[in-house]
């Protein structure tokens, strides 16, 4: 949308124009967003894409604010994406991985959060292996909480960056048919994407083996397919999900090779989709398990690298709009 080159001051002007005050103190789930909220966040994120492409990437929106990355579950991509987003907005960012420290000594999630809270961070970004963990923290701390993935529940900033990627690739999300494929049962990415894509007017399909499909998925307002070729027929977008390898060995599916045969994305299955189809993956990919390298690396169809880029911009939009709530001081305007 805003791919036309702008000079630096133009971009900062645009960011200021699109400044948005997040509707609530925390960002825990896409379920609480309204359509105007989502559009405003995406417009702001779009402006940040421009900022991230110029040589001088740092602005002062979050100057003086402290951001804590609290990752109970390992993550390279999401954690560095949030860290970069915070730093480019001028915040002080701290990374914590309690799985290697006090949590093993019996300190609970709440204890860790209360300790961090006492250090007065402004925004706490949390990833945890239990569904609802971010909700629980949000009830106990005085700062803003951003859910960076809670168990099999939600990963709302992933959905936002996926929507941003799609909007830039197709112009609009409304009317697109998107197939989300693979391990839907355990996927927080799938849940957040179903919610946000539907909010933005897309048609959503879920594709995967019955053992990896939540039993109530048919009630989510989506179409459920177990045959991937049928599920991909005439879709505009294929969104692949990561499959944890420990679930492959006879537990949920019989073997890696059988999974790839029926639900791995290769050129043959992709041919059922609409011409101009785009492929996405939240990463990290299991090449040869859920996705064929030829597809993943094909610049004509793959949006996977764009997703990573959009991740930083989308998270900057979330952080900036949460910060706009935090105070009414000079930072509230955005730039």
């Amino acid at each position: 949308m805003d791919s036309a080159p702008r000079d630096g001051s133009d971009i900062e002007q645009l960011i200021a124009e699109r400044a948005f005050r997040f509707p609530s103190r925390h960002f825990l789930s896409v379920a609480k967003l309204t359509r105007p909220d989502a559009d405003a966040l995406l417009n702001l994120a779009d402006a940040f894409v421009g900022l991230n492409r110029r040589p001088e990437k740092k602005i002062s929106t979050l100057r003086g604010h402290t951001l804590v990355n609290l990752f109970f579950e390992a993550s390279t991509r999401t954690q560095s994406s949030f860290e970069l987003a915070g730093k480019r907005l001028g915040a002080d960012t701290v990374n914590m991985s309690p799985r290697t420290s006090s949590m093993t000594k019996g300190e609970t999630l709440i204890d860790t959060a209360m300790t961090l809270n006492a250090m007065k961070p402004d925004i706490l970004i949390v990833r945890h292996s239990a569904s609802g963990a971010a909700d629980l923290l949000a009830q106990k701390v005085s700062c803003s909480v951003v859910n960076a993935g809670d168990g099999g529940h939600e990963h709302p900033t992933q959905a936002l960056l996926d929507a941003l990627t799609l909007r830039r690739a197709f112009g609009d999300v409304a009317g697109l048919t998107v197939a989300i494929c693979g391990d839907v049962l355990h996927s927080r990415v799938a849940r957040s994407n179903v919610g946000l894509l539907q909010l933005l007017g897309a048609h959503v399909r879920l594709v995967g083996p019955p053992t990896l499909m939540p039993s109530g998925a048919a009630d989510w307002g989506v179409e459920v397919f177990h045959d991937m070729k049928a599920g991909l027929r005439d879709v505009d977008v294929v969104m692949m999900l990561r499959l944890q390898l420990e679930r492959m060995d006879g537990a949920f599916v019989p073997s890696t090779r059988e999974y790839f045969r029926y639900w791995g994305l290769d050129a043959e299955k992709l041919a059922y989709a609409r011409p101009g189809v785009k492929v996405m993956h939240p990463g990290p990919m299991n090449r040869g398990v859920e996705i064929d390298s030829g597809v993943a690396d094909d610049p004509a169809v793959s949006l996977i690298q764009d997703q990573v880029e959009m991740g930083v911009a989308a998270r900057m939009a979330v952080l900036a709009s949460l910060a706009a709530r935090l105070d009414n001081g000079p930072a509230a305007g955005g730039v």
């Binding site: 529940h153 849940r191 109530g216």
Partner: peptide, 10 residues
Amino acid sequence: EGELAGRLGL
């Protein structure tokens, strides 16, 4: 198991 637990990721 059901729609609610599925949505909550439980």
